[in-house]
Design a protein around this nucleic acid. Structure first.
Lengths: 248, 248
DNA sequence: CTATATTTTGCAATATTTTGCAAAATATTG
DNA sequence: CAATATTTTGCAAAATATTGCAAAATATAG
């Protein structure tokens, strides 16, 4: 096997998984740990990954405070993302907002899926960077350094230029009456995305269900589909079914 | 078997598989390893594949990845960035393009500098994420997965909404007559930024001076200031001084 | 067609690079 | 601080490259 092939596999492993270990890689590639160590050192010096004790981590442009939020309830978010994936068909145009569940969805998008994704979220764009087919359209605007997404009038105007098939909505707070969030700008943005999509799919870990936040976005009944990590037959979802929302 | 046929088979093997090894090819083609080696060297010199130890890899597979470019000539770029910094004053509005020297400038921006930076580059936005004062406006558009920057009509329209104080221009190629680069979209973008700024400052490692690329951007004399890592009294900068360009 | 030049090919001797191992150095954990 | 795990370093063996050269193949000229 060529060194280049090995390097590609190491990079692939590291970027898809977020990290890679010497142990696993040297088994997978049937070479000694020393070789992997040297490979990783080389790739590090080229800036393609970061060598750390025990292996390597992928170089990410995404800042730490966001990263931390990314990792909470990660398992539930993955379950949600998998369910959401079943809704996506080839050739569709989609809004992805800055929610962390939405980000998980971006991460697991199959390589053979040919879709256009419109987003204001850097982490989402970052996750799709390596996707071979997905066309990414980034919404310009002022940069919110907290959420690492764009916002403001420019972004809203950008959204209004489209009418997309599905909006994947990262839910902050949902009650039977309202969808709400903690940031005014974010609320405006999410409303605009809802208004400019045929279907809105809410992604929401269960702990956020039946809560309300300061800024009202829209009435909950405008939601088309709600995805949580719970089974759809779980009794607590009934109030939402009653509103005509499909539970997944 | 004709050499041409062999070459075609080698190219085929390399591109479908991503890579090819001497061992396999010399068995498959029933010639000595030396012959394959020579073939691959020839194909490499024609730019049809890349010769590596043990075989060859397809060229399309080795995109000129931004993360790699970020790390080349890093010391020179830091010198350039420091010089560029002296030009920036409080309250100014600046264009930063996707050049790697420009990125270095973004990285060393002092925390007490209060400026607005308009950019289409993810790495630049990322570098400014921790800056306490800098206001970042991101230009929306299609995402170029190679350069981690937006491009296209949307981005151009975004640029045209401003008239900024200084454009920090990451130079690909510069001769006494023309500024040029390797990508058409990038050329359009850089021209637009020039046209919508009062002053254009070119950032350029010396190895790019006196070179030309495929896509013309604008006449070199439209540049206001040129910064390289060399001292301004260095003799080779004279032809640019003659054009009325200030050397820093 | 023959003789001669040119290119291509394979081989062997000689560099160079890569690889895995083991000992020494260093970092991490309790 | 000791015990353990990980990394670095030097080294020798293996793999791969380079070079020069001669034989074979191909082209060119008369």
């Amino acid at each position: 096997m060529l060194k280049e092939d090995r390097h590609n596999i190491i990079l692939e492993e590291t970027s898809t998984n977020g990290s890679s270990s010497f142990q696993l890689l040297c088994k997978k590639l049937a070479v000694s740990e020393d070789t992997i160590r040297r490979d990783i050192r080389e790739l590090d010096s080229r800036g393609l990954l970061k060598a750390v004790r025990g292996g390597a981590v992928s170089v990410s442009r995404i800042p730490h405070h966001y990263r931390e939020r990314e990792h909470t309830d990660i398992e539930q978010k993955k379950v949600i993302a998998k369910k959401a994936l079943t809704l996506i068909k080839n050739k569709q145009v989609l809004f992805f907002d800055g929610g962390t569940s939405v980000l998980e969805l971006a991460k697991i998008l199959p390589a053979d899926l040919n879709v256009t994704i419109i987003t204001n979220s850097f982490p989402v764009a970052n996750a799709l960077e390596d996707h071979p087919l997905a066309e990414v359209i980034f919404l310009g605007g002022r940069l919110n350094k907290m959420s690492f997404a764009t916002f403001g009038n420019e972004t809203l105007k950008g959204i209004s230029k489209f009418k997309v098939d599905i909006y994947f909505f990262g839910i902050c707070s949902i009650s039977t009456s309202s969808l709400s969030c903690k940031d005014l700008e974010d609320a405006e943005l999410k409303l605009a995305m809802m208004q400019h999509s045929v279907k809105t799919v809410g992604l929401c870990t269960w702990d956020k269900v039946n809560s309300e936040s300061t800024y009202f976005i829209r009435e909950t009944k405008e939601l088309d589909i709600l995805i949580t990590e719970k089974d759809k037959s779980a009794p607590p979802t009934k109030p939402f079914t009653k509103l005509g929302i499909e539970i997944l």
